[in-house]
Simulated assay, not measured.
Amino acid sequence: MATFLHTMVRITDPERSRAFYEALGFRFSRDMDIVRDGELEATNYFFSIGDSENVLELTYNHDGRTYEIGTAYGHIAVGVDDLDGALARLQREHGIEPERPPYRVTEGGSRICFVRDPDDYRIELIERRSH
């Protein structure tokens, strides 16, 4: 039987990324340094959300490299209880604006909205409460 463990994305500023994901409701769990041949190569930062432990791994490589997201990456989806509150908090604390105002894909469906994290990864916020 297979079990989903985590998703990993590469980051360029651990402090900004940690603050962003914590503002979305993730809990920092732990970090782990990767040392190869006596040199600090990378640090992995693990985050939990709800009852799911260590489902997000943010990897910071210490060699200063940059990344291109590419055309294959889509988004990470995160359920939030209060979409308007989450968006207001992201704007107030991180200056992050939504790509467009919240909307529904189908009539009567959940309200959703997309934002971008500090490394420009798309994050879909899905309101999980009924109105």
Rank of each mutant, 00 (worst) to 15 (best):
T3K: 11
T3Q: 13
F4W: 07
F4N: 04
L5G: 15
L5E: 15
H6D: 01
M8E: 14
V9L: 15
V9D: 01
V9Y: 01
V9I: 14
R10E: 03
R10A: 10
R10W: 07
I11L: 01
T12W: 01
D13K: 07
D13W: 01
P14A: 07
R16E: 06
S17F: 14
S17N: 11
Y21C: 14
E22R: 13
A23Y: 02
A23L: 13
G25R: 06
F26Y: 05
F28S: 04
S29E: 15
R30F: 15
M32W: 15
M32A: 13
V35P: 14
R36H: 13
R36S: 14
R36V: 15
D37N: 13
D37V: 14
D37H: 12
D37M: 13
D37T: 12
G38C: 13
E39H: 14
E41T: 06
A42I: 11
A42C: 11
T43I: 06
N44M: 10
F47M: 09
F47S: 09
S48N: 02
I49Y: 09
S52W: 03
N54W: 00
V55P: 08
L56I: 02
L58N: 02
L58H: 07
Y60S: 01
N61M: 09
H62K: 08
D63E: 05
D63I: 01
R65G: 08
R65N: 06
T66M: 03
T66V: 03
Y67I: 06
Y67K: 00
E68H: 10
G70D: 09
G70T: 11
A72R: 14
A72Y: 10
Y73N: 12
G74V: 10
H75V: 03
I76P: 09
A77W: 07
V78M: 09
V78L: 11
V78C: 10
G79T: 07
D81I: 01
D81N: 11
D81C: 02
D81E: 15
D82K: 00
L83M: 10
L83D: 08
D84Q: 11
D84N: 10
A86K: 14
L87T: 11
R89I: 01
L90K: 05
L90P: 04
Q91A: 13
R92M: 06
R92H: 04
E93P: 03
E93Y: 02
H94T: 00
H94V: 02
G95D: 08
G95E: 06
G95N: 07
E97T: 02
E97V: 01
E99N: 05
R100G: 05
R100S: 08
P101Q: 03
P101M: 00
P102S: 05
Y103W: 07
R104V: 06
V105C: 04
T106I: 12
T106Q: 12
E107T: 15
E107V: 12
G108T: 09
G109R: 09
S110I: 00
S110F: 03
R111Q: 00
C113Y: 00
F114Q: 05
F114G: 05
V115K: 06
V115E: 08
V115M: 08
R116F: 02
D117I: 05
D117F: 04
P118S: 06
P118N: 06
P118W: 00
P118I: 05
P118Y: 07
D120S: 14
Y121V: 08
I123V: 15
E124M: 07
E124H: 08
E127Q: 00
R128P: 01
R128Q: 12
S130G: 07
H131Q: 04
H131W: 10
